[in-house]
């Protein structure tokens, strides 16, 4: 059996898939299904596609209740729960703030203190409708799209009896299945930016890993950072990463963003709301060439 490698460009980044132990024909077939699924999700969730479901929702819901299909409705309900569980640090209504200013450096952002629940997104379970009670509100899929896609990819692979593989979306969201062909699980490392060493290694099996943050190199290009803290009303410009592993790529992606924004005490609180998820914080602050690495939870990730 060969090792099948396939990739594609989607959701503004690259998707790479390595599946050991299957033949090329099966690989091609499964990849065609995965490509369709990712494209379907992108057509559902991209704000850059005028007629995506999310674009229609953002356009309609500030005026009238938007009747969503079951998949989108349940997703929005889930995202609302994530807002509460992340103490407001994961907030899909971030799209409103991107629209009000540009995304470039020096944006004037309005603070939005944690309210306990995302009540301005009003959902009606009976009618499967969504309404935005706050004018100008807009949902952005940037913080969860790749994780959701990886979860759906996992299902496609499982449906076709493929239980071994390494799948990366943008190298910031990773899904691993089963074992490396020559070892137990998969060892995923976060490389040191100053040397060829690793700053930490995650030994994963049937797990996902998500990385969020700013490297010093990113901050040269985007000095204000690309992640927004709505609670503070500011971009997060600290230099460092948060890496989260856990069973779901969707939740891992949400958590890594929320934990990167949150303060140290809140990080523990948030993690407690996500049993089974582990996080490591890597800091490049203090002008120190050796990153400050801390586990947020004292659970071994080995």
């Amino acid at each position: 059996m060969a090792t099948v490698y396939r990739n594609l460009f989607a959701m503004g980044t690259r998707f790479d898939m390595v599946l050991p132990g299957i033949d090329e024909e099966t690989g091609d077939f499964v990849f065609s299904l995965i490509r369709k699924e990712i494209q379907r999700l992108e057509e559902m969730l991209s704000n850059y596609i005028e007629f995506s479901s999310l674009s229609k929702l953002n356009k309609t819901a500030p005026k009238f209740p938007f009747h969503a299909d079951k998949e989108l409705f349940e997703l929005i309900c889930d995202l609302k729960k994530m807002y509460t569980a992340s103490l407001g640090y994961f907030d899909v209504s971030i799209g409103s703030y991107k629209e009000s200013g540009s995304t470039g450096a020096g944006d004037e952002l309005q603070a939005k203190p944690f309210s306990g629940s995302l009540d301005e997104i009003v959902t009606n379970e009976l009618e499967k409708s969504i309404w935005f009670s706050q004018p100008g509100l807009s949902i952005d899929s940037g913080g969860f799209g790749k994780g959701l896609a990886l979860e759906n990819v996992k299902k496609v692979l499982s449906d076709h009896n493929i239980h071994q593989g390494f799948i990366s979306f943008g190298e910031s969201s990773v899904l691993v299945l089963g074992n490396h062909p020559f070892g137990e699980g998969w060892k995923v490392s976060i490389p040191d930016i100053y040397s060829s060493e690793s700053v930490c290694v995650f030994h994963l099996k049937n797990n996902a890993l998500s990385v969020s943050g700013n490297t010093p190199a990113n901050l040269v290009k985007y000095p204000q950072g690309h992640i927004i803290n709505l609670i503070a009303g500011a971009r997060v410009s600290k230099s460092g990463l948060v890496c989260v592993s856990g069973p779901s790529a969707f939740y891992a992606e949400i958590l890594s963003t929320a934990l990167f924004i949150a303060g140290e005490e809140e990080q523990i609180q948030i993690l407690n709301n996500f049993p089974g998820y582990k996080a490591v914080r890597v800091s490049y602050e203090s002008n120190c060439k050796i990153p400050d690495i801390r586990e947020i939870e004292y659970t071994s990730y080995e």
């Binding site: 995923v188 490392s189 690793s198």
Partner: peptide
């Protein structure tokens, strides 16, 4: 190890 999210990320 498989490196992700490195300096070039």
């Amino acid at each position: 190890v498989i490196p992700i999210g490195g300096a070039s990320w």
